[in-house]
Nucleic acid binder design. Structure first.
Length: 639
RNA sequence: GGCGGCGUAGCUCAGCUGGCUAGAGCACACGGUUCAUACCCGUGAUGUCGGUGGUUCGAGUCCACCCGCCGCUACCA
């Protein structure tokens, strides 16, 4: 019986634009896990890829005057190389939802579920945004308009296929309860449980009027809708239906990394799909946080997206990987700043690790004529490093099995720091002055070489070039093959080293726009941040505030706190739904003047289109409508 | 509004089922060292463990309420 292949996935990314460092973060993390398991001797199947269907891609392609396929081919090519290439991403399969086998898998899943009665054809009724060609549920609308583009929507009924998720609700809850590790971190688990307990609706999984997608079998008017298509990629990539032998070894996924914004799809819809197919569920779905730029969300529209390729060019692959894996707490949101990267580069990579190699090889050169001495019986001071190395061997393993990548690296650094301290404690330069202490000196040099060799093994899942560089300087030519090489004692003595260039030349942190590591930095930073909280006068002018008069007011039936108001704004009467029922009697409001936010996106509240909002101040339990202190004509601009 | 989480040194955070003088990394200061990439090693915190009250022989660790922040959700707009 062969051991199960260790299967890890990243989300498949949407190639409508170039990816940024947030995507790199997830993918590098998955890569480190994959490399670690390979090093442990396990068969690994590491999959990443792209989610290529959908309206937006099709639209973008037409704008550029190419076919959707040509459009995505180009971007996907870029993602594979140079993007993932430059970060050393060692995926075993790059899946594209436009791959032939994926189409086949999605269609057979559809047919399969149809035959079982888990898919039925019904009518989808919702609000449709014509320009976006997108359906929205009432609750998603923003002031009755499309939440994406703000344009009005219309009520449309459309034939659609539905996936009977509701049928699996209880089983899903039970599965989460029975498998505490299924959703991680646990905060996400609680959220999903409360979401499930609120009740599941069947999921509409097809659309008509879309051309760029996988067709519903025997009903080519319909195209299978995004999530159903996208989530199936994890099955396709494992060889479901097309490579049965592989699938038997690979399935189910051991770890699926996802961003926190898509945890719900991966921990509810996705497992229910698998339940319906009678397939085992993934063992762990890990919802990590976002990598923020400073303290704001990264996005293309904000123009603050960081290009990972540029970073690797400036600092090298390993510095970027190290930063992502070490600095960002896996789970919570992390914050990216280039200053932090540079600081970490100097402190951890140059000072602690690079300098350790540099000073160790220098001493082997000088005191040992370039040859690692054979060890002699250890004195008490020499036993610490081997013991620590053995302990850390276990600790790293343990941390990695819990996906605590940053902690694993932290453990390796305990060993690196201990080696630096050991040099200080033993002061080899003093031992070298006394011929009677030659054996002690030999042991020190040996321990340093051996510790560095162990470090090169331990670091190899995380860093690409550095382990090789360390080994070359230690005189080793073969790359790391197995985690067991991290067991202390492989050097016999007699190996000739080859001193080389510094691993990570220190950066001058004072130069350029990057702050120096002293007091000026926080000051500068806080100034920037407070500035970020200002809006310009132009920003404010975007808000159109007008005086209006309430002409009618009534409670919204079935709502505890909503009033439906009819407000005259000088041009027309508009309906505004406001959550002030607890504070105002509808009767007393008629005739009251208010300040209206006139250009707010309409939104549907409790089935009523609310076209604007009225200003009110609140403090704790108190709430009071804001009104001009004397009567003004309706429509008067407030500014 | 509901559910959940968080609030511990200047910064980022550890502190499990309550128990000796509350920890780590970074930053900062001082001292040491010279093999090394102006590096490394050591020493240093008066931290009201968000606030108040309670349970207990004893609470950062449990309970209640309050304040602040965050996530999900909802009839927020």
């Amino acid at each position: 019986m062969t051991e199960k292949t260790w299967y890890v996935t990243t989300p498949i990314y949407y190639p409508s634009d170039n990816l940024h460092i947030g995507h790199a973060y997830t993918t590098v993390a998955a890569d480190a896990l994959a490399r670690f398991h390979r090093l442990k001797g396990e068969e690994v199947w590491f999959v990443t890829g792209t989610d290529e269907h959908g309206q937006k891609i099709s639209q973008k392609a037409h704008e550029t005057g190419v076919s959707p396929k040509e459009f995505v081919d180009k971007i996907v090519g870029f993602i594979q190389n140079p993007l993932w290439q430059s970060l050393g991403i060692s995926y075993d399969r790059f899946i594209r939802t436009t791959d032939w086998d994926h189409k086949r898998v999605v269609q057979s899943i559809f047919e399969n579920l149809w035959e079982r009665g888990d898919i039925y054809k019904g009518e989808y009724e919702g609000w449709y945004c014509l320009p976006d060609e997108t359906f929205w549920t009432e609750s998603k609308l923003v002031d009755g308009n499309c939440p994406d583009c703000g344009r009005p929507v219309e009520r449309v009924k459309q034939a659609s296929y539905f996936f009977k998720m509701s049928r699996y609700q209880d089983r899903m809850i039970q599965h989460i309860l029975d498998h505490p590790d299924f959703i991680q971190p646990s905060s996400r688990r609680n959220e999903m449980l409360s979401f499930l307990e609120a009740g599941l609706e069947d999921l509409s999984i097809s659309r008509t009027g879309l051309d760029w997608g996988i067709e519903v079998p025997n009903d080519p008017e319909h195209v299978i809708y995004v999530w159903f298509d996208a989530l199936s990629n994890y099955l396709t990539a494992a060889g479901y239906l097309t490579e049965p032998e592989r699938f038997a070894r690979v399935w189910p996924p051991d770890v699926q990394l996802v961003g926190k914004e898509i945890v719900r799809f991966h921990t509810i819809i996705w497992p229910i799909m698998l339940m319906a197919l009678d397939l085992p569920l993934p063992r762990r779905v890990f919802g990590h946080g976002w990598l923020l730029i400073g303290d704001t969300k990264m996005s293309k529209s904000r123009g603050n997206a960081v290009d990972p390729i540029a970073l690797t060019k400036t600092y090298g692959v390993d510095a970027v990987r190290y930063y992502l894996l070490r600095e960002v707490p896996f789970g919570a949101d992390g914050s990216y700043t280039e200053d932090a990267l540079r600081l970490l580069f100097n402190v951890d990579l140059a000072n602690d690790l690079g300098n350790l190699l540099s000073r160790s090889t220098a001493m082997i050169d000088r005191f040992g004529q370039g040859v690692i001495p054979g060890p002699h019986p250890f004195g008490p001071l020499d036993r610490h490093l081997p013991q620590l190395a053995a302990e850390i061997y276990e600790q790293v393993d343990q941390a990695m099995s819990q996906l605590l990548i940053s902690d694993a690296i932290g453990q390796i650094y305990r060993l690196i720091r201990a080696a630096n301290k050991y040099i200080e404690d033993r002061a080899p330069w003093n031992l070298a002055k006394d011929p009677a202490r030659q054996e002690e000196l030999d042991n020190v040099l040996y321990n340093l070489a051996e510790t560095l060799r162990v470090v090169s093994v331990l670091l190899s899942p995380f860093l690409i070039e550095t382990p090789e560089k360390i080994r070359r300087q230690l005189g080793m030519d073969q790359p790391v093959q197995s985690y067991r090489e991290a067991i202390y004692g492989a050097f016999q003595g007699g190996e000739r080293i080859r001193r080389g260039e510094p691993l990570f030349p220190r950066l001058d942190l004072r130069e350029g726009a990057t702050a120096e590591p002293g007091a000026p930095e926080p000051a500068q930073k806080s100034a920037d941040m407070s500035q970020a909280n200002y809006i310009s006068l132009d920003d404010f002018k975007k808000v159109e505030l007008k005086v209006g008069t309430i002409r009618q007011a009534e409670a919204v039936k079935g709502a505890d706190r909503l009033l439906k108001l009819t407000v005259f704004d000088g041009e027309r009467e508009r309906t505004v739904v406001s959550g002030i029922k607890a504070h105002y009697d509808p009767q007393t409001l008629v005739g009251q003047q208010v300040v209206l936010v006139a250009n707010l996106k309409p939104v549907l509240l409790r089935g009523i289109l609310s076209e604007g909002m009225l200003l009110a101040g609140s403090a704790g339990q108190q709430l009071s409508i804001v009104a001009p202190s004397s009567r003004l004509p309706e429509g008067a601009r407030v500014k």
